[in-house]
Structure formats: C-alpha cells, structure tokens
C-alpha cells in the first residue's frame, strides 16, 4: 500500500512500479487562455465522450458549467467587475494587477487602449461607461493528485495509478458504487447517469502509451495547456510566475504545484490570476485519507463500545 499523505517524490514507484516512465502531467497557464474551448472539443472527439447536455446557463459564456463524467476539460469564464476608472487616483495605474501578456487585444487593428480610457495592456478586461469587467478564463481538468482520494476509496480497484503516475478508471471493472464522486476534493469525477459508471480525464492514457501528447494540449492554440514531465513543468511554471511578477502581474500564482500541499501536489496544476475559489477550485484541498487512521481508530472504539453495551445489557437483574 502506498503512502496516504504528505510529500511523495516518486508516486509511480510508491504505487508498485519498479521500472517506470517519468510522471507526466499538465501545466495549465491560464494567463494565456483565450477561452476558445478547443481543449473541450478535442477531448470529446478523441475520447468519444458523449454530450453533457445542451444547456444555456445564462451566467456567462460558460455553458459547460463544470467537470463531470462527460466533461473532462472545462473552460471556466470568470467575469469579475473591477473598480471604476474614475474612482482611481489619476497617477496610479487604474488596475495594477494586470499587464500586457502579449495576447491579441479586444479592439480593431490600430485601436489604442490608452486613448480608449482603458488601462494600458488591459487585454483581459473590457469596459463600458464607468465600470469594467475583468475576464478570467481557465481550462480545468482532473488534477491527477499525488494522493488521489478517488483511487484510495475505490473498493473495486477500478481506479488505478498508471505507469505515468496518472490516475485512470477501468470501465470494465467499475461497478458504479459512486464512492469516488464525493471523495474527490476538486469535484472532478462523476457517475454518467445513463451508463451507471464513473468517468473522468485519463490524461489520454492511450495517447501517452504511443508517446503522443494528450488531445487537449495538442489542440490548445496558445499553449495555455502544456504537457510534459511533471518535474520539468513545475520548473517551467516557476519561471513563468517569476516572469509575470517581473511584469507587475502580482496576482499570478501557482495552484497545485506544491508537493507539500494537502494532496501532495497535483499532476495537473495551474497558473491562476485570482484566488482559486474564483475559478471554482478549492483553496486548500486535503486528501480525505489523511485522516484515515483517526477514522478507523474511532470506528474501532465505537465498535468496542457497542460490544460493551451488549455485554452490559445482560448483566444485572434478569427478567
């Protein structure tokens, strides 16, 4: 049995692989995500994932809504109002938290953001009148946790750790017990209603076996989704954050890249431009099995108490 909690540098070895591939994963740099949803489409196409409903949410451009059994990539669209331009002291930058990321702008060619009254390089923002909306887009995916709760709680052994260190469901084993669904601290995996079994991102296990890039990363036009060895991706992510901080984007932060966090670090981690919960991510997820020892201890104590109650019930007067 592998370790349940804490830092773990060789997750694949811990799972029992002796001679194994390096751990593979995603680094999703949301600062260059343009919300095109090519990842969602490519994932669906390659993995032959059925439709997940054709609902219009009315809340934003996000009609996909959330990750689920039939949604393995989900592009979140955050429309967050920012302070009015007039409310800012004129000498201060109106929105000091964003900067030119080198992406195409919102206006027609030659359109100058300075003259429009918008802050310079405010590419993820748009404004009308006295207020504005800040756009945040992020392609969410299964985190392929170092300590994966879904895998830990799966009673059939359907969920397993691959030789690439990823976490995959075996559909021929899954009996749809649904334990993985509430176990996931990110709300990724779910049961497909008409099928009965649990499904989630496989990190394109089949493509990895052929040395190919997962479909979403291959389709991403801005390299917001980067695929590679987790160790190398973490290094790349650190450099990218430093670069953004140098440019004044102080809000840039990594999410899931820390091997000392509550899930031992994610195989798929993110660069975010706001707090995780703004994107629908838990701010400090902890794998539920961290408390497994305490749980079984309390079950043992409670079972002993019940046995003692049983014995005590037959002591004393008979009638």
């Amino acid at each position: 049995m592998g370790s349940l909690w804490g830092r773990l540098d060789d997750v694949t070895g811990d799972a029992g692989y002796v001679d194994h591939e390096p751990r593979m994963g995603f680094f999703t740099d949301t600062s260059v995500c343009i919300g095109c949803k090519a990842c969602e489409v490519a994932c669906k196409e390659w993995n032959q994932v059925p439709d997940d409903g054709f609902e219009l949410t009315g809340m934003s451009y996000d009609n996909t809504q959330a990750l689920g059994a039939s949604t393995w990539r989900h592009v979140a669209f955050v429309e967050k109002p920012f302070e009015t331009v007039a409310a800012q002291p004129p000498q201060e930058p109106p929105h000091p938290t964003t900067t030119d990321l080198g992406l195409p702008g919102m206006g027609p060619p030659g359109w100058d953001t300075h003259e429009s009254g918008l802050p310079s390089g405010e590419d993820q923002a748009t404004a009308s009148g006295d207020g504005g909306i800040r756009w945040l887009m992020s392609s969410d995916v299964c985190k392929h946790c170092t300590h994966a709760a879904c895998l830990d709680v799966c009673p059939t052994g359907s969920l397993f750790r691959t030789e690439f260190g990823t976490v995959v469901v075996q559909p021929d084993i899954c009996n749809g017990c649904g334990y993985c669904v509430p176990a996931c601290p990110y709300g990724v995996i779910d049961l497909r209603e008409d099928d009965g079994r649990a499904f989630k991102c496989t990190l394109c296990y089949d493509r990895l076996k052929d040395g190919q890039t997962p479909a979403c990363a291959q389709a991403c036009p801005t390299e917001s989704i980067q695929f590679g060895e987790v160790g190398e991706l973490r290094e790349r992510a650190r450099l990218r954050v430093a670069e953004l901080h140098d440019k004044g984007v102080d809000v840039a932060r990594l999410y899931g890249a820390d091997p000392d966090d509550g899930v031992g670090g994610d195989g798929a981690f993110f660069l975010l431009l706001d707090e995780p919960e703004v994107y629908g991510l838990p701010p400090d997820p902890v794998v539920t099995t961290r408390d497994l020892g305490s749980m079984w201890k309390h079950v043992g104590a409670a079972a002993s108490a019940l046995a003692a109650v049983g014995v005590a019930s037959f002591l004393g007067r008979r009638r």
């Binding site: 049995m1 349940l4 830990d152 709680v153 799966c154 009673p155 059939t156 052994g157 359907s158 084993i173 899954c174 009996n175 749809g176 017990c177 649904g178 334990y179 049961l191 099928d195 009965g196 079994r197 649990a198 099995t289 497994l292 749980m295 079984w296």
Partner: peptide, 20 residues
Amino acid sequence: LGRPERFLHMLRVIKPTSPL
C-alpha cells in the same frame, strides 16, 4: 450501484483505504 450486476467486483480486492 450504477452497475448492480457487478456487485461481486466489491470482493475482487481488499483495500483498507476504502471503508466500502
């Protein structure tokens, strides 16, 4: 179960990490 006919899969492994 989502696949009741596979209930015996519950007994194909024993995992202390899974109370189920």
